[in-house]
Amino acid sequence: MTNPCTIQLCDQPFEPLEALAGWQRQLEGEALGPAAAEAHFIGRVRATSASGAPLEALELEHYPGMTEMQLAQLSQACAERHGAEAVLVIHRVGRIRPGEAIVLVAVTADRRGPAQRCGQELLERLKHEAPFWKREWSGGVGTWVEGNTAW
């Protein structure tokens, strides 16, 4: 069975709680919801750069086509491995201001374990295997961020 995975790249700010509500209504319309267990992660842009300077903006570049394909494949693989029912990934691209949401990962399952484990693995895998590149803008200077923090 194919688990429903919804992938969206947004070039404008999005409100994670509104996006979640819309996704839940969509699942209910597909007679899948409400799920017994649901895990969510919202990532927001920090106010400081890696060096501690005030951050003006974070710019996020992606590889159109490959990024969406990787997100879909990773979501499907994680959902199958953990027995999750449905997955939602929304990821910003372009210029993002401090405090704005950059990523939302939501997973439904029959139990908390599969929902949380699927969400955590998917988040870690997309940070390393979906082609996104961050550039921090601080003091009018852009610096590419190479790699991710450990956690």
Binding site: G43, L60, H62, Y63, G65, M66, M69, H91, I102, V103, L123, L126, K127, H128, E129, A130, P131, F132, W133, K134, W144, V145, E146, G147, N148
Partner: peptide
């Protein structure tokens, strides 16, 4: 062609080849 590959994978005419610096998403 938008899938990760090895540096020694053979390329065919018309392929799309991308070099990707270290990824930093999420």
């Amino acid at each position: 062609n938008q899938a990760f590959a090895a540096p020694d994978a053979p390329l065919a005419d018309g392929d799309e080849l991308a070099f990707l610096p270290p990824i930093s998403g999420g």
